[in-house]
Design a binder for these strands. Sequence first.
DNA 1: TCCTCAAGCGGACCACGGTCCGTTTTATTC
DNA 2: GAATAAAACGGACCGTGGTCCGCTTGAGGA
Lengths: 202, 202
Amino acid sequence: MQSEGLLRVTGDDGERTDAARNRRLLLDAAAEIVASCGPDKLTTDAVARRAGVGKGTVFRRFGSRAGLLHALADEAGRSFQQAFMAGPPPLGPGAAPLERLVAFGEASIGRMLLDGQILRAAEQRGGPDPEHPTQQLVRLHLAMLLRELDVQDPELASYQLAAFLNAGLLLHLQEHRGMSDARLAASWRVLVVALATAETHS
Amino acid sequence: MQSEGLLRVTGDDGERTDAARNRRLLLDAAAEIVASCGPDKLTTDAVARRAGVGKGTVFRRFGSRAGLLHALADEAGRSFQQAFMAGPPPLGPGAAPLERLVAFGEASIGRMLLDGQILRAAEQRGGPDPEHPTQQLVRLHLAMLLRELDVQDPELASYQLAAFLNAGLLLHLQEHRGMSDARLAASWRVLVVALATAETHS
DNA sequence: TCCTCAAGCGGACCACGGTCCGTTTTATTC
DNA sequence: GAATAAAACGGACCGTGGTCCGCTTGAGGA
């Protein structure tokens, strides 16, 4: 009998060698499929078949289709993570916080062209549709008010604000992060007041 | 033979009477299911069965499960729409723009407790998961920088910023709204600069 | 080297969203 | 009221994500 039932680990990080091998096979197969057909064509069946493993293995290793896409996106984005955590300024440490914030946003935006497809697919099939009539109504309303406040680019700013006023996010913050309505409202107020009082430098 | 093949309309807004009846049956059935079991239990089969219609009818009327949920949420939110478009200040017209913006956010936040469940379900099954490790890393980074800038409630602010730096949204703006990287970056800069320079009133 | 058993595996299976197409209903015209 | 064609209907059907469970593998202990 075996003295310790908990630490059977031998692989890199607690993964059996065949498990590690299959993870790689799956990630490679997924990358190939995405490269040749786009992320939408990546079905769990297809990736399993291509990797030469059973479908169950996909879910054992990655939990879900989204998990697989996430792992893929993480591999691609590892250098980005390195860059903003330990790379050279202005993205990495060394520059002033505001510089770094600006750089971070710019880098994120630029990155989208690169592997945004995968990131979007990982975020979930479909996702909230910004062009749904109801959402448009909200944004139109926000944009109108922002315009009156002389905010720069009110249309885009309305997207930024609407992105926060989102049922999925708000409910998550309330339910899983225990944030009170008061706190959410206060933060919203800070945000819009900041936007409103920002000087409109061209 | 009939002279005009285009205008067969007789119902309220171009809908045949049986179509209108079925729309109501479906909405009512959906509302009942949501009320008794929550939105997650609302399957297209179940709602069709409960309404006593075929499954195809669900899709003919609402296009998708999400469409049905949206219609449901819209019914519930109609009074809210009225309120911010034509109701009394500060939500409706009459108050200063900034007041209205603040009120709008507060109302949206408060509304979530009411029928946020439906709205979230309508937004799409799953949706982006804010607690995914990668997302957490991004938010931690943002929060750290925001803290250095003495922004109020940096944690929550990090959610606000991250909500915008989102592959689905960014890609949508680039692809379907034709917004350039430069424009997105400029708007991002305005946003973070505004937050950074807002005075920290307790 | 063999034994043991947790970890891993595979693919049949299920549930659900969405499509398709032959049939039925509705409104209009005569 | 009969004829007509567009619109709507229904439910069998399909693809895909995700689960389940009996079988296999691999690694440490003896």
